[in-house]
Design a protein around this nucleic acid. Structure first.
Length: 552
RNA sequence: GCCCCGUUAGCUCAGUCGGAUAGAGCGACCGCCUCCUAAGCGGUAGGCCGUGGGUUCGAUUCCCGCACGGGGCACCA
């Protein structure tokens, strides 16, 4: 039995108990079964009796007893007990629990996938760095988490698109161009310009490819270096993200928004909705109507559109492309944008509670040798995404960035991330996968064809087998919760729990025959359990974008 | 001043609609490989869940205040 089928059985028992005892119960509440912390409390527990006691007017323990009596007759349930203030503790029959191994192996990659977000089109925008430099530590968290969120959405049945917004317009681009142009001429960057060793590298590369730029001057020269630098830098960002296994579906350019008329269309939409006004020679959006601290300028007195104008157009453009939900993953340094973004959705006539979500991620720091890392060998004064990958590898970097809830600040300990022991969770989980792969490999080499069966689930009665099965059964619920709450770290934590359950099982339950021992039915049954566990570990690691190695 | 986030074991952190004796890893101490991967497993020690109130059968969890720490409040991008 799975958590869902147990919950259904409880619901049926509640209805039956109400009928048998004449309880007045217009509707059965949604039943949630949980896995008790204490092993003695059974495989599953529910507190329905306590939640219904008021409505029904019967003491919780009596109500629990009545429900338990009905529940006992359910197929697949071994025993039911009432405990504490009115908890119902349920123990499932070994065979019905172990059938799950077959279910998982047969479902393969699909095990755990759900339909809770079926038919929903979600746009996940993240990183959206300026194309004026390499991606740095501040971008890394979202590079991993944003991608994982999109994968979690896919697993929940949604249609998720990963989108990167390129701020390729405005004065910072000119400052970027001027900085490179100056570097090419051996001059320092202008005030408010871009420094860093990468600027000098860009200048050198551009001079190699376009020696003729040396003869240009004035705005023409700045524009030439700006455009060349933009192209190189954007490509470099794409290459690094590719290496990091974060692949975007859409690279949206701010310039393109202006060139395609999306900005005019967005402005028109906002005017239609009646939230645009003029004051002091500028054009404003009345975002305060929807809870923003102050109204925002769309077009400055000098006639230039603001960055905010592009933002509004971009949001409206996304919606016009059919996305039901637009997710903006922003760093804590941008949290001030939440109010105005929500207001933009409202000003556009949308529901800010449903159509737009703006999770805020806290900052990331790196420690090495007990001290905060501040300098990058490559880029002068910043730590790049590439540095991190060079240092610890893609798997460790992705895993550790996803492993924590994004609303708490993150400190990455580089010394820990390269360690190969169980204080490094990524290896701990991967090791479990490799260990199983090894067992399955050894079985195959010994000519044991477990898949040909027969699989006798009722043999999996060992304490550790039962616990492992219980953890395997949780996976679909974990994935669904991760999608609903936009919290992929739950998947990582779950995998650690699963790895622990497997390692304990492995330690106390011999799988393959030793020496000249015969292949027993329990051997086959345990191999099914191993195969199921390997599958779930692989599926979960896939959600995180981390590899599941067969050997380590 | 206003807004967002955090505060749980010595350290790094889990703990979604309020539930039974608050968890994991590390660090410390003690154990387990002639046997499927010891990158593993078992045990001991370690807690006023920041603080003061409130809500109720029950609060680490929900509400309000306070303290401490981080971040933010542009006709910049």
């Amino acid at each position: 039995m799975t958590p869902d089928s147990v919950a259904q059985a409880v619901a049926a028992a509640v209805t039956a108990a109400a009928q048998a005892n004449g309880y007045e119960l217009d509707e059965v509440p949604v039943i949630r079964v949980e896995r008790p912390r204490q092993r003695e409390h059974g495989d599953y527990a529910t507190n329905v009796a306590m939640t219904l006691t008021k409505k029904v007017g019967v003491p919780p323990r009596d109500l629990a007893a009545a429900i338990a009596e009905q529940l006992r007759t359910t197929d697949g349930i071994a025993s039911v007990d009432v405990a504490g203030p009115g908890f119902i503790n349920i123990t499932v029959e070994a065979a019905s629990q172990a059938e799950l191994a077959r279910t998982i192996v047969e479902a393969g990659d699909a095990y755990g996938r759900g339909t809770s977000l079926s038919g929903v089109k979600i746009n996940v925008e993240f990183i959206s760095a300026n194309p004026t430099g390499p991606l740095h530590l501040g971008h890394t968290r979202w590079a991993a988490v944003g991608d994982a969120i999109a994968r979690v959405f896919d697993a929940a049945g949604a249609e998720a698109a990963r989108e990167f917004y390129i701020n390729d317009r405005g004065v910072q681009m000119d400052r970027f161009g001027e900085s490179i142009a100056n570097a090419a001429a051996g001059r320092p960057a202008p005030e408010d310009g871009y420094h860093g060793g990468y600027v000098t590298d860009l200048a050198a590369q551009i001079m190699r490819e376009h020696p003729e730029y040396a003869d240009l001057s004035g705005p023409e020269r700045i524009a030439a270096f700006r455009e060349a630098g933009y192209a190189i830098q954007l490509q470099q960002q794409k290459d690094v993200l590719d290496l990091f296994r974060t692949h975007f579906d859409v690279w949206a350019s701010e310039r393109a928004l202006h060139e395609s008329g999306a900005v005019e269309r967005g402005l028109e939409r906002l005017r239609e909705q009646g939230h645009v006004y003029e004051s002091d020679g500028a054009v404003w959006l009345r975002t305060t109507t929807f809870g923003d601290d102050k109204d925002r300028v769309l077009i400055k007195a000098d006639g230039e559109g603001t960055y905010f104008l592009s933002d509004t157009a971009y949001y409206i453009d996304k919606r016009s492309r059919g996305f039901d939900v637009c997710l903006y993953l922003l760093g804590a340094d941008h949290h001030g944008y939440v109010g105005r973004l929500k207001a933009v959705a409202a000003c556009a006539g949308d529901d800010p509670e449903r159509n737009i979500e703006v999770p805020i991620g806290q900052m990331v720091k790196m420690m090495k040798g007990g001290e905060e890392v501040r300098l990058s060998k490559r880029a002068g004064n910043i730590i790049t995404l590439e540095d991190l990958v060079d240092e610890v590898g893609v798997d460790a970097a992705r895993y550790s960035l996803i492993r924590y809830p994004v609303d708490s600040p993150l400190v990455l300990d580089l010394d820990l991330l390269v360690k190969r022991s169980n204080d490094n969770p990524v290896y701990y989980v991967q090791y479990a996968h490799a260990r199983i792969a090894s067992v399955l490999r050894n079985a195959a080499e010994s000519g044991i064809d477990w898949a040909a069966g027969p699989f006798e689930p009722e043999l999996l009665t060992h304490e550790m087998e039962s616990r492992l099965l219980g953890v395997l059964a949780e996976y679909p619920r974990v994935l669904a919760a991760a999608a609903e709450l936009r919290e992929p770290h739950r998947v990582a934590r779950y995998l650690e729990e699963l790895a622990t359950a497997y390692h304990k099982f492995y330690d106390s339950c011999r799988v393959l025959p030793r020496g000249d021992e015969a292949v027993e039915p329990i051997t086959i049954a345990r191999l099914w359990l191993c195969a199921a566990t390997r599958q779930v570990l692989a599926n979960g690691l896939g959600i995180l974008g981390v590899t599941a190695p067969d050997r380590m």
